[in-house]
Design a protein around this nucleic acid. Structure first.
Lengths: 203, 203, 203, 203
DNA sequence: TATGAATGAGAATTCATTCAT
DNA sequence: TATGAATGAATTCTCATTCAT
């Protein structure tokens, strides 16, 4: 019984330790030997913990996705005005940019290598969970929560592909300004959701 | 007399015909055999037109990127109010979403498989060219042009990974509204560029 | 009919022009494309003159071997004392060293790639012819003629493999001295062949 | 516990077991599959022991060359008169003719396929070592040691290419006679080296 | 005849996975 | 459990040869 626990925690440690490797080189460009070397184990040992290479990717995505959500929830424990809460989200993104970048790449690798539709649902659920928490925390419509995440992912892509032509910081600042401006403008003075467009309901 | 083949045009046709294959399965998951089968030629013939597999990816990205810019320039020939011009851009994006999705994936594959830094500059220049044309056409600051592209890419990613949880159409509509609202609000009544933030100068 | 002649002479010219290529890189390391490029013709044209790649090697060996024998016979037209005639032979070798080197390499390539025993006889006959002419010209026993050729080939090998550690000139001089010394010592005063050992019968 | 394999000794065994294959067919005519079949292993296993095909050739040449030198040194442990010592050399050559033939062919393959000049130095050093040991053992000048080796190589070539027209035994006997005759004739009665020509200093 | 694009078998090499120890 | 040698199918790429034009 304790063995099992050890096994699982060992597995998680392994997934952490080769997260960068997969993210940087890409699933297809990493060999099991690379992984074994990185983790300082034999290739054979790898197969004690993971059924096959694909399983590493899947479990890695699940684990890191979970880590991400946990960290998000931790940050969302803090309350305050809408602006403050939105800022927490932006800060979370800025602080976690490196991990987001890796998750971003891994999710695409996963998508392309996923054998079954059912395995893709792993990612779908993760996104769903994320959005619904944002919705509640920021008191914004689902559509707007998705809107924010869309932008974040756009920044991650742009920063990865054109690191020299884009300033993540500036783009984030601009986005913050744009979205706050929009939400304020559409705020219902009677504090109700506007039917025509998504907006904020703040106390 | 041998069969006269316009190498360059044949090459382009080939690149067009296997664009989808690469985009969907990913560079690493496509074999030269796959490509040959798709193009209905022998593997050997492939090597008459492309030095190696990597070269296919590179030339494909260059070609499709060029196609994209050409189409964008064609659309930008139309003039009108800022709103009209912005709409043209949004329509362009909506119409080309399928191609953007493919370029999006290929650009990432390219990034991960590019051997030299110099080959990456191919992508950099493409992005640069794109942004500077938007800048001129829409009379918006560079930062804002990048902002729009960032969002587009975010939508592409989101739609690819979570096709069921996101409505591209709705996100685009929301983005249009948000950005127009922002730009209008910051429009300088005296028709000059505001220093503090990027905005629109429309007649 | 004249076509045939042209054809043959053209073939010979081609064989001359790619002799170096084969000798330097080796049969297996030369592609038909290489040959075509060297001769400034298409690969298809090559197949009008030669049945296949192997045939080029065979015909090249026959032609260059014949050239060699012809040149040898030309030189052997000169008469004189034994020393003078031997010198002619040594000079011939020194002058033709570059060609010998090439024939040396080609003959080994030929040996290894020859499909049938019968095709090898090409080389055997060439050697036979060579030796019997030396025999007559120098009035030495066959064994001694072979002895000289053996040494020449040894020098070719050594010079090719260890160009910096061996002096062809010095080795040739030494060999000349050694062989003359031996032959003189064993010369039969009554001008007859000594039974016990091969030697020279000079007038 | 994994199977414990002495990599180096296994590698040597492999090199021994496919020496003939390479020598007979030639580097270019042997496929990795051939090698694997000969050694009764999978092609993949081959790559555990050798980086690539070229490496097999190189290491084979180094190993067999070393073997050769070791055997030569073993034989040179015996002392005696000059004639006796020379005979030991001739016997060594006769006994090792089959291996010499193989080394001869491999050295040429090596020469033609060697990528860098530095890798050629492998062969140069081997020759150097050989000659300098002969020099010491037989008390003959370097030039004369080279002379003997040149002849040996000539015999190897001739016997390989014209097995039916040449008698190795006879050629060797003749060479022995010729060289002894020469050396005796030039022996300095006062036991000193003659300036004009290389010769023997025997007690 | 000449061309050179096309063919496709076959080469070297890689790598996920297995399994004897 | 752990090891890492071994497997062999699959991959990229080459090249002698063919053949439509």
């Amino acid at each position: 019984m304790p063995k099992i626990v050890d096994h699982d925690s060992h597995r998680e440690e392994m997934l952490d330790r080769c997260f960068d490797l997969f993210a940087e080189k890409g699933f297809g460009n990493v060999t099991m030997r690379d992984v074994a070397r990185e983790l300082d184990v034999s290739t054979g040992a790898l197969y004690h913990y993971f059924e096959n290479k694909q399983a590493i990717l899947e479990q890695m995505l699940i684990l890191q996705g979970r880590r991400d959500v946990e960290e998000a929830l931790r940050r969302m424990a803090v309350t305050g005005s809408f602006e403050e809460r939105l800022k927490i989200f932006f800060d979370f993104f800025k602080d976690s940019e490196a991990r987001f970048r890796k998750l971003f790449m891994l999710s695409l690798d996963f998508l392309r290598n996923a054998k079954s539709e059912s395995s893709r649902s792993i990612v779908y659920r993760w996104a769903e969970y994320y959005v619904s928490n944002m919705e509640k925390y920021l008191s914004i419509p689902k559509e707007m929560a998705q809107f924010i995440i869309v932008f974040f992912n756009g920044v991650v892509y742009q920063a990865m592909l054109f690191p020299e032509t884009i300033s993540v910081k500036d783009q984030m600042a601009l986005f913050s300004e744009v979205i706050l401006s929009f939400l304020r403008e559409h705020a219902d003075p009677k504090n109700r959701l506007c039917r025509r467009c998504p907006f904020i309901t703040d106390k």
